[in-house]
Design a protein around this nucleic acid. Sequence first.
RNA 1: GGAGAGGUGGCCGAGUGGUCUAAGGCGCACGCCUGGAAAGCGUGUAUCCGUCAAAAGCGGAUCAAGGGUUCGAAUCCCUUUCUCUCCGCCA
Length: 422
Amino acid sequence: MIDIQQIREDSQEVIARYRIRNFDASDLVNRIKTLDARRRQIQQELDNTLAEANAKARQIGELFKTGKGNEAQALKSQSAELKKKSKQLQEELDAAANELQELMTNLPMLPHPSVPAGNTEADNLVVREEGEQPRLADGAKPHWELASEHGLIDFAAGTKVTGAGFPIYTGKGAALQRALIAFFLDEAGKAGYTEVQPPLLVNAASAYGTGQLPDKDGQMYRIPEDDLYLIPTSEVPVTNIFRDTILEEDVLPVKYTAYSVCFRREAGSYGKDVRGLNRLHQFDKVEIVQVVHPEKSYAALDEMVEYVAGLLQKLDLPFRVARLCGGDLGFAAALTYDMEVYSAGQKRWLEVSSISNFETYQAQRMKLRFRRAEGKNQLAHTLNGSALALPRVMAALLENNQTPDGIKIPRVLHKYTGFEYI
RNA sequence: GGAGAGGUGGCCGAGUGGUCUAAGGCGCACGCCUGGAAAGCGUGUAUCCGUCAAAAGCGGAUCAAGGGUUCGAAUCCCUUUCUCUCCGCCA
């Protein structure tokens, strides 16, 4: 949620900035402006009424104490009137505040000035590309064929046990998964991220805090009996550690990393995009999360991109980095970089990481602040990124490293896998 | 899942209808004292909303959450929730 102060101060500027998202906010912003003024007016009236009622109650107490009970009777009825009035005002205030909140929730984050214009993925701005795309012999295979050939993944069994999109890793496939998780966590630790193991189920307040609710309601699996949600990413539980928190300024930046299983319904997906490991309902991911001082959040974003680039270099995977255009930018993000690896068997770029600065969007919802040495408490900025999502990394590793003698495991993983070839 | 006891400020803890503007202690900050420190003494120390250009000030709200009784609720009633103890179940 954006800061309503920005709308009060310069609503035209806010509307103009939303255009980069191809979002015409003029109607919504104007309604918010009107409603905000109304809300404040009601509150003033209510506060005055309550102040009066409080004064009367004090008077009555005084009169009883000094034995003038009869005089108090008259005041009682006045007080009752005030109460009736304040109750009504309170209802009006609640209604206005709720409606305002609801409208604010419909506003996405204001995009950063560097976000390029555009509508779709095709308009994203590739800002970096490196690594050599492997030249494979004729007959190079996609990862799903390699996986079944070498007994790494049993898609059919997963479909039987659960359903499509729930693969079962077996043998060296399972070991490679475990190796990647350990490698990513160790690297994050070296880069100063504290490892955490979060719950895989979260409550509605947490899902709201990071912006999954109400916007992406249909994306999450839900446990209705307990009103809990399976996490679509560990960003949700990890960032919500700081919900309703005021941090001391000197603990910033907070840097956390977490491995978790992630669950996504991916309703409506089909076709070649979901073949093999390309898109799953359940997958593994190591996430990095930062809570930072607002003035340092873009430096932190760059640092995170650099960190993930380093992982891909170590795995010897060709990759590119794209700055998402306004039309492709997520609801909660001010600026996002997608990292894609080239997967030579499918001859496609696969997204393996998405790194975003949410500025105050999540902080506002979560009431995550820090205490300034001078002045008022202030909202912190939150960021997160995948480092990395495993399935597509696995797909690219299998496809790019296929040789007539088997699949080569990158050197950095040897100590984790215990084998160099599959 | 059953029974019982609880939830008060950063922490501990008092508080059974008006003087709660929440005692007292700890912690923290600043000052005095000191050669320096400790001790001691003094002062301060929550969050949110509104008002104001802003700060101060002022008004309102908040004693787990929500509702109720009352002129007036931390205090009484109802609901929910969480924690603890015992029992049951269990990796």
